[in-house]
Structure formats: structure tokens, C-alpha cells
């Protein structure tokens, strides 16, 4: 029984990783061609569908962690996926005014390259049991540049969307109401920005640690 379960798990994860891989490959390709043909203002309109699909598929990663079919702890997966979903759905999708910003292009480039490498890395590992060493190196090296550019783009987009959040009052709940509750989307965004301050260096440090562990292994073995 354990054998059947582990092969079903492997087949499922292989399909999952390669499917999402193709989603991000599409995002990357569309971003680059749009940049060449019409400029950064048109990037969001062109990538919207594959972006939303590929990014929302990451919800399953939280589920994978929770169920325990992948090793990464949910405490590591949840904040990463949540911040991505927040920018995708909560900012870009919800506030069209921000979609023409230059940071959309840099964000798409940073996210898609990171994810193309990451999903193919896990796709190889699940399908073949190993990943080529150059892919391993890429997986644990590209973040050195793509994290800073990605995080700068995320923060930049949230920051630039702030006036629209405040102006429209979208997603905000005002008192009085029967539940005596209020919610301010604008202040929540400020809170999210505040979380980036300790969160970003923490994540970067975590990845540096992972890099050291992953790339120094062959020597000790």
C-alpha cells in the first residue's frame, strides 16, 4: 500500500510541477514579447490569464505542506505564497490603475524566471529522482538577484497603489454595522508593507542558508 501511495504522490507532484512550470514559461514569454513589441504598459493585460492561473496554483503548495506530501514546512510556504497572492489578486487584479506601472514588468520577469527554475527543479526531482547539477546551482543562486528585484517590485506596486486603495475604499468595511466591526484595506496594506521590513531580510537569510546547505553537499559526501 505504501508503494502505491508513494508512486501516486510522485506522479501527481510531477504533473503538478511541470504544469505550473509551463504556466510560468508562458508568463515569461508573453512578458518578453510584449516588452519588445509595445512596452511595459501593456504587460499586465497580456499576461493576466496565465499569471493568475499559475500564481493561484501555488495555493496547492500550502495544501501539499499541510498534508505532508512535500517536506517544506507550512510556516515557510504560507507567507511566501500569501504575499504573492496578495500582490496578484489584492493589488494588480483589484486596482487596474496600477497595471501600467513599470514595476509590473520587472515583477513578471523576476517571478517567472524564479518559478521556471524552481518548478523544473522539483519536476526533475519528482520524475527522475534527481536534478541536473546546473539546475541545482540555478535554483540556489538566481534568487541572489531575483529576490531583491522581485521584492522591490512587489513593495513598489503596493506603495504606488496606496492612493487608489484610500480613494476607492474598496474592500473596506465601515461602522456602524450590526457586528460592530470595521476593516480598512488601506491601513492593512500599510501593515503588509511593514511586514516586508523584517520579512524580506529574513527570507533572504533563509535562502542563503539553504544555498549553503544545497551547494556544499557534494564536498561532504
Amino acid at each position: 500500500m505504501a508503494g502505491i501511495f508513494s508512486s501516486v504522490r510522485r506522479i501527481y507532484l510531477t504533473v503538478y510541477n511541470w504544469t505550473v512550470f509551463f504556466g510560468w514559461l508562458q508568463v515569461f514569454y508573453i512578458t518578453v514579447t510584449t516588452l519588445q513589441q509595445s512596452g511595459h504598459q501593456s504587460v499586465y493585460a497580456a499576461v493576466e490569464k496565465p499569471l493568475i492561473l499559475a500564481q493561484s496554483a501555488a495555493l496547492l503548495e500550502i495544501l501539499h505542506s499541510l498534508v505532508g506530501i512535500v517536506r517544506s514546512p507550512v510556516t515557510a510556504t504560507l507567507p511566501q505564497v500569501a504575499s504573492r497572492l496578495y500582490v496578484t489578486w489584492g493589488i494588480l487584479y483589484s486596482f487596474p490603475e496600477i497595471r501600467t506601472h513599470f514595476f509590473v514588468a520587472s515583477l513578471m520577469i523576476s517571478w517567472s524566471i524564479t518559478e521556471i527554475i524552481r518548478y523544473s527543479f522539483f519536476g526533475f526531482k519528482e520524475a527522475a529522482g534527481f536534478a541536473p547539477s546546473w539546475l541545482l546551482w540555478l535554483r540556489y543562486s538566481t534568487f541572489l538577484i531575483l529576490y531583491p528585484t522581485g521584492i522591490t517590485s512587489e513593495v513598489g506596486l503596493i506603495y504606488n497603489a496606496l492612493p487608489y486603495l484610500k480613494e476607492t475604499g474598496k474592500y473596506s468595511i465601515r461602522m456602524p454595522n450590526a457586528l460592530n466591526f470595521s476593516f480598512d484595506y488601506y491601513y492593512s496594506a500599510l501593515l503588509v508593507l511593514a511586514f516586508y521590513v523584517p520579512g524580506s531580510p529574513h527570507l533572504y537569510g533563509y535562502m542563503l542558508g539553504q544555498r549553503k546547505k544545497a551547494l556544499s553537499k557534494p564536498k561532504s559526501a
Binding site: 461602522m175 456602524p176 454595522n177 450590526a178 460592530n180 466591526f181 470595521s182
Partner: peptide, 9 residues
């Protein structure tokens, strides 16, 4: 904050 709010119902 909510129980003592000026717009409390």
C-alpha cells in the same frame, strides 16, 4: 476599540 466606538450599535 470596537465596544467603545462612537459608531457602536
Amino acid at each position: 476599540y470596537y465596544v467603545n466606538h462612537p459608531l457602536y450599535t
